[in-house]
Amino acid sequence: MHRLILLLALFGYLPAFTQYKPLDASTINRIKEGVAEAARTTNTISSDFTQEKEMTILKDRILTSGKFFFKKEQQLRWEYTHPFSYTIVIRDDEITIRDEGEVRSFNTQANRVFAEVNRIIIGSVRGTLLDDTGFKASYTQSNGNYIVRLTPLLVTLQESLQEIVIYFSKADFTVDKLELFEPAGDFTRITFSTKKLNQPLSNEIFSLY
């Protein structure tokens, strides 16, 4: 009986090991080059996104969704459309928020977590994050993705973020999915879909005034 349980457990876990095996140095270099090349040739991204906040202890989750826009060099727009209307525009170091019709601006440096999330998202889109000395990186892969796990080295950031997992598409090295793990066990998964690269995006998209 014990052998049977052991066998079942072994077979149950084997697919996980084969799916996420560590990568060799040459594959890691290929990923870095692919991401850097994608960043160099990608001027704009527009995409839908779904966001799931998993509250592991509560066995519950919060689902939100909306539209995402990026324009080189450092312009981002997160537009939440469900279940509420809320827009964040990040231009360089300035964040502007439209919440229930009210627009506010502040500097990312005033909000450490926002600054880090901003740095992570822009860094993953531009490919600079993989060489960021503030994180320890490990590389694995699944069928459709190269998976990069980033562990913050700064103690101040570790208080808010335990690990960031970026799923790069094997097809075009753009970000398919982003997971932000928190110290208490909760995590947020942002999945990008219907991505459009290098479509013209007007500057008005990145202004809320």
């Binding site: 966001q51 906040k53 509250m55 202890i57 509560l58 919060i62 939100t64 997160w78 939440y80 809320y86 964040i88 977590v113 926002f114 999330v117 808010s160 973020l161 932000l180 928190e182 208490a184 909760d186 995590f187 947020t188 942002i190």
Partner: peptide, 15 residues
């Protein structure tokens, strides 16, 4: 009751 408050990007303020 369990109360979880997070920012829009999902990062927890308090639990």
């Amino acid at each position: 009751y369990r109360i979880v408050c997070s920012n829009e990007l999902g990062m927890t303020y308090f639990d």
